[in-house]
Design a binder for these strands. Structure first.
Lengths: 237, 237, 237, 237
DNA sequence: AATGAATGAGAATTCATTCAT
DNA sequence: GATGAATGAATTCTCATTCAT
């Protein structure tokens, strides 16, 4: 993983009517957002309902509309919030590492830890594709941007194969991480629906061996990226 | 990619009441399934409605229930159908290749081509996570199983690094392919919503360079999978 | 009970289009009517459906409309049929009795026996009130007419109190019989839904004691029908 | 009739979600229940629909579901409500009478008056048999329980024949009253569908003459309950 | 005579959002 | 700021009936 530190702050929240919030309002809004995270994660966007969110927040139904314009809007805020938090978790994890591979590993670990602790991440973010596609793009893009910057820097340092395209590689890495997290964390929930605290022993090692090879500077014998010189153009029927 | 040939047949379809279909029934059912593919892909599961599907199929509303029990069921059938077809496309593409890398490349090419031609694949399959999680698992698992078998065989042939875990690697490969397809095919639609016929020139080359390195048998100098001996266990807070 | 013998024949059945039936048609029609009796009794009018009836009859759906015009019509035929049969059962039971009370008792016994053997009687007839009110009236009226005639004859013979109004009394008798049958036969079904073969020992004796008193010619001390001379007219608010 | 005073209160009504109602809610709920009584009585359960009920109540469709879970539930509440009210009407009518026969007559009068004023009673209660059989049992049983208690007391006072079984007799009395009400009140509606204010002159007198004989303590000449000593056991085929 | 695919009107029910208190 | 009663558009699903085979 390749996220550089992006210590963002959530922007100061406003009420639905656009006015800044009092401290009491701030608290209510926060309670709603937390309830939304829980409800959306448990039920998904369509099963979730405003009543369930407000009930779970211990707040009157009408109050919701003092802070959010619509169901969709609270969902979008939540995606932004989770995106901010997962990137923060990754940055934290990577801080103080040395060397690209070590950093990547730390980034993945941070990501998986966050996933284990906040199952809402997958549930909400992946559903964003069907609720608010722009938010999904934003989410992926922001993470990939970090990766990409990290890869470029590492190429510059001679830590990563210069011939790799940083953008394509960054998306590949993120995709790998996403499915591994899904498969080995979220699908391993116990009957009560709780994800395990961590992946099965060794999973990250296995993943890293593959990634390390992929990123490694090719030796003197430096194999060309592909054996046969077919381009994907030819492959299209 | 690593799918072995799985020339499956769709099981003989039954009416909703469980009886085998007449030829006329067969046609109607097929029309409905095609309409469903289109509508689900365009609108997503929740915006889609039975009326929209039957209208699009040019068929009476009630007729739908002669062939499917519910909206959810037709959706599930569609996932199965797409899964069957994409795996078939991949197998076809890989047939006749020699060497693991060449096969992987061909598999990805088949996958991306299918994606470009059937945008429903992503739209429907990814939404399955929220509509019918078991179907999502089935879909991914069936594809991964093929990958995994291919990797094992290649390890046996000395084509792929023996130290790699085939299962973890297979999931990583599929994840990489999925996000690359999403980013460089689906997100590149023109204003009319049509996906390009193929990815930007070179994308697959870039992806393959990364993958080739990841799978390659490590040379004499063979770097260990990770530089520092931390396990993911330690990483857990 | 007071039914005189009315050995009616069901009128020769016609197809829905009004033509007389062939022998094969006759059989099919009879199968449908029997299936309808079973299905209506088990499910009630609204839960019942033409498909269920035809399936239960082992006959194609469309065939139904060769013999009946509508769901409602088959229901009405069924009411007529049951009415004919229950009156026949009562007549049979009463044949050969001597004396009014003995005849009444035999009539009730016949009625209860028929009820135990054909739970459809209650289920279908009572529901007729909401499906085809005219049929309900027909059913009750035909039975009451028999009662009434019997009572009049018995009054003439000096067997029954002359001061009783035969019509009112006949309705009262039928009402009593109906609720007793409902309470002590139909409500006593076992868990499998089977009515017992007969009422609890003594029930008919108890009922008959009450009825005997009600019909009996008042002795010399002959109490007047009511103690205080209020008419129901006064009672209306 | 034999109902003892049962001055029940309707239990405090709750919203569909189980919360107690505000005063405004109370009003709305009452409006809905009244509309339901009218609509169910006019159209029967299956022709009735939630829209018709809410329109008749002058209330938005969705509002219905704030107070009732389903069409079936509002129907059941209505049965309970009518049951409470008819028993109340009967108790009121019987209050202050002296002697069993006088009480019976007053009870019947109260019952018939209620029937004339609330045709919903028959329509709804009798249809309950097909909508919610438990409610039907509850309804009849509650009324019969009152009768039975009255009869026992009267037997104790020497007012009613000791040899009668109070339970069987109570069911017989209720059945008689039910059919008499149906025949001479409900079937006598004019063309506009309005039931007459009371039964034809003399009907209650006729009915009471029969009942009085049935309940009367048998004189010295006390006829045995039946002439011939056959039990209903023998009657079973 | 028999069949069963096709139809669409109609019903119950949900829920985001508004607004008077 | 907070509340929750009211609303109605929209959706899924059922089933009596028709009709071409």
């Amino acid at each position: 993983m390749s996220t550089t530190d992006q210590s963002e702050q959530a922007p100061a929240a406003l009420s639905a009517s656009g006015k800044p919030l009092t401290k009491r309002g701030e608290t209510t809004r926060r309670k709603l957002l937390e309830a939304a995270e829980d409800v959306f994660a448990r039920l998904g966007y369509h099963e979730a309902s405003i009543v369930k969110i407000t009930e779970s927040a211990g707040i009157g139904l009408g109050t919701f509309y003092l802070y959010f314009d619509s169901k969709q809007q609270v969902f979008e805020e939540l995606v932004l919030d989770l995106n901010r938090r997962v990137r923060h978790a990754m940055s934290e994890a990577m801080a103080g590492t040395s060397g690209r591979i070590e950093a990547e590993r730390a980034g993945f670990e941070g990501f998986f830890r966050f996933t284990a602790e906040h199952p809402a991440l997958y549930r909400v973010v992946r559903e964003a594709e069907f609720v608010s596609p722009e938010m999904l793009r934003l989410h992926y893009t922001r993470i990939v941007d970090g990766y990409e910057a990290g890869l470029r820097a590492a190429q510059h340092d001679g830590d990563v194969d210069d011939a790799l395209d940083p953008e394509v590689t960054a998306w590949a890495l993120m995709g790998a991480g996403e499915l591994i997290g899904m498969r080995f964390l979220l699908w391993e929930r116990d009957d009560a629906g709780n994800a395990p605290a961590a992946m099965p022993e060794g999973t990250i090692d296995h993943l890293m061996r593959f990634i390390q090879g992929g990123l490694a500077v090719r030796g003197a014998t430096g194999a060309s990226p592909r054996e046969s010189p077919r381009s994907e153009g030819e492959a299209d029927a």
